[in-house]
Structures are given as structure tokens and as C-alpha cells.
Design a binder for these strands. Structure first.
Lengths: 209, 209
DNA sequence: GCTCGGGTTGTCCATGCGGCCAATCGTACT
DNA sequence: AGTACGATTGGCCGCATGGACAACCCGAGC
């Protein structure tokens, strides 16, 4: 990220001034996202962002209306990117069980170490206070739940899942479960998710009474 | 909270100096917790806390090693208090279904408006970064999950719940589900929890395939 | 060749912060 | 009565922050 190649002239091309402008803007956004994940939303300063981006701190004032706007924009972009992978997984997975197994496996493999997780928690906390951030984040969540609901519906038609329960409800519950589990894992890294995974998969499979 | 009765002499008793000290400390802790819930962890200043507590700002330095310690202590106390009600509910509830229905009803009734919810989110985010806060919070979570597991076990012995799944896993899943739902509700207040509630209760009851 | 304008740079400033401390107070103990 | 000591109080300091700004650089278009 400190690498100037992000915003400086590449070998072949000459850096038109307009190109430089967008490059600087992007470098600031990337640096802001990285620093929020590292140090926390409120610990981040415009000077630190500029330093990380390799630009003088005056550049922040020029490219953004203020720290608030910069962080909001950076957080939104980072959230969209972080949510892209799970969303794609939800659409491509063959079944709910497969999705859950894959996600649990990712948790167990230490997916929490990904700075994106810290980034998401910071963004969620901020979104709870800033409506301008909350609205788009809520929309992203909505899309994710929708993709999940489609997957659930497919499973129900195949008879792999109880058909008597509302698909959107199952989707909302699964989404909440997975996010809640992330939250608990962040607070207690020693928590063993194996039993929870077994329990959920067992219940969904219709364990005998 | 501005009410001086919290820390000033009550009618009958004379305020011994030691008692005053304890009262001031407590007033600072209460004010800190309230302000964190209102404005967010990082937006809180020692001066604002002192003003809310009705004491001069120098009192903070005297009673606490620093802002960090004050906030940590306040957050921990507030979290313990906020978790007391759900924990008691988990121990006293007759069944998992009853617990879930009660909790869902509380969500639907607008339990999110409770400042304790904002407080918890702030504390969680901070605990993710501060091990000194994370450890006790993790312990509280552990206790809550344990109480829930006991409840699940009772249900399994009564045959109200599938016996083939690990009780601690079910407990961990339910705890994550409920907390994750809070998170989603904070980010999207318009989210309807009814379908999710129906789905979870249906799955736990063993809906026919 | 010259202007024009977006992009860049470093400096400056007002503000508010957390923490420190010396003076003061008032109670409890001798 | 006198002393010791914890609690109180408000002023003070150093410092970092976010933002504004004037000077500048340099390619683009005439």
C-alpha cells in the first residue's frame, strides 16, 4: 500500500493530470480503508491516511469535503468489496448445507484474521450512527439475504429443506447466525465453532426427535 | 443522570469524605456509560463525562488512571448490567421456544431503542481491539452460552428438541443468531423479524419435510 | 509561446483534547 | 485544638488534530 506504483506513473504511459487526480483519490480511499481496519475508525487521522497514501495531507482537503466523507466513501467501497465474495458464494453454492459448511470451514481456518472482518465491524458500528452510511449498507445486506433466500427456496423445492417454513425467514436467520458467529468469534477467538456447525447442519437436515 | 442526588448527601446521612469519593467515582462511571451509548466511544471526552457527572474535569484524573481505564471500567459495568436481564431470562425460561419467542417479541416491540443496545455494539467493537476489555466480555458471553446450553439440555431430555445434536452447539448457534439479528436490526431497522422467528421456531420444532 | 485551470504542496491557524498539579477544603483521628 | 490525609477544584500546558489557503507546477488547448 505504501508502494507508490498505486498512484505513480507506470512505465509505458505518461500520467495525464486527470489520471493523477483519480489515482490520488483512490490511493487516499485505499489508505483510509486499510487504516480503519488496522487502528479503528476513530483512531484514524487525515494525516495518517495521507502518509499511508504517499501524498501530502493537504490533498485530503482537496479531494474530499472532509474526513467524514472520505471515511464514509472508503468504508462503503471496502464493504462492497468484502461482501462480494460471500454473496457470490451464496449464489453459486449448490445447497444451504454446502454454503454453511464452506462458511464454517472459513471461520475455522482463521478467516477472522482477514482485516476485512475488522473493517466490517468498524463500519457496522459507524453505520449505526450515520444514516448516510447505514442506508447503502442495509441495501447490501438486503441483497445478500435475497440471494440466500433464493438458495433456500431451491433447497426446499428439492426437498432438502423443510418446505413449511418461510424461505426469507430461513435466509434472515442464517445470515444473522453467520454474522453473529463472527461477532462472537471476534470477542472470543477460542470459541469452538464445531459444535455450533454440527448443531445447525443437524437441525436443518431434520435430526430425529 | 444530571441529578446531583446520585452523588450528593442524602437527607438523613452526612456525607463522609470516603462516601463522597465512591459516589463521585460512580457518577463518573455512569456518565461515561451513558455518553458512550449516546455519542459513541470515540466521540466521548473526559470533559463531557465530568460535566454530565456534575464534577469538575480534574476529578477524572484523580479517580482513574486515564480516559482509557475509565471507559473500560464503565463499559464493563454497563455490559454486565445489560446482560443480566437476558441471562436471567435464559435460566428462568421454561423452554428454548419460550426464550426465543420472548426475545423476538422484545425485538419487535422496539427493544433496539434501548441505549443499552448501542452501548453493547460500542463495547463489542472496542473489545475487539482491547484485550483487557475482551477477556471479561468473553467470560460474560461464555456464561450466557452456558445457561442457554442448560436450557437446551432440559428441552432435549423432555423430548422437545432433537437429542442428536450437541446442546452446546445449539446454544452457541442460538446466541449467535440472536446477537446477529440485533446487528442486522441496528443496520436495517425496517427488517421484519417475523419470518425469521417463524423459521427458527419451525425448524427447532422439527417441521415436516 | 502563452495562457488557462486542475492538481499539488507545505504552511498556518484555531480548536479541543488528555493529563498534570498546586492550592484548598473538610473530615477523622489524636 | 491541632494535625494528617484523602477528596476537590480549576487553571494550565503541550500537543495533535481537521481544515483552509496561497503559492506552485505542468500539461492541454489555442
Amino acid at each position: 500500500m505504501d508502494n507508490p506504483s498505486t498512484r505513480r506513473n507506470r512505465p509505458g504511459r505518461r500520467p495525464s493530470t486527470a489520471e493523477q487526480g483519480v489515482a490520488t483519490r483512490r490511493a487516499l480511499l485505499d489508505a483510509a480503508a486499510a487504516l480503519v481496519a488496522e487502528s479503528g475508525w476513530c483512531a484514524v487521522t487525515t494525516r495518517a491516511i495521507a502518509a499511508r497514501a504517499g501524498v501530502p495531507h493537504g490533498a485530503v482537503s482537496y479531494h474530499f469535503a472532509g474526513k467524514e466523507e472520505l471515511l464514509r466513501e472508503a468504508a462503503l467501497a471496502a464493504t462492497r468489496q468484502a461482501l462480494a465474495a460471500p454473496a457470490a458464494f451464496a449464489t453459486q453454492a449448490g445447497s444451504v448445507a454446502e454454503l454453511l459448511e464452506g462458511t464454517f470451514a472459513w471461520y475455522a481456518a482463521g478467516g477472522l484474521a482477514d482485516p476485512a472482518v475488522a473493517q466490517l465491524l468498524e463500519t457496522a458500528r459507524q453505520a449505526a450512527r450515520d444514516p448516510l452510511l447505514r442506508a447503502p449498507i442495509a441495501a447490501e445486506l438486503h441483497d445478500y439475504r435475497k440471494a440466500l433466500a433464493d438458495l433456500v427456496r431451491r433447497d426446499q423445492q428439492r426437498g432438502a429443506l423443510a418446505a413449511g417454513v418461510p424461505a426469507d425467514g430461513v435466509a434472515a436467520a442464517i445470515a444473522a447466525l453467520l454474522d453473529g458467529l463472527i461477532l462472537h468469534l471476534v470477542l472470543d477467538p477460542d470459541l469452538d465453532t464445531q459444535p455450533a456447525a454440527a448443531a445447525v447442519l443437524g437441525l436443518l437436515a431434520g435430526e430425529p426427535r
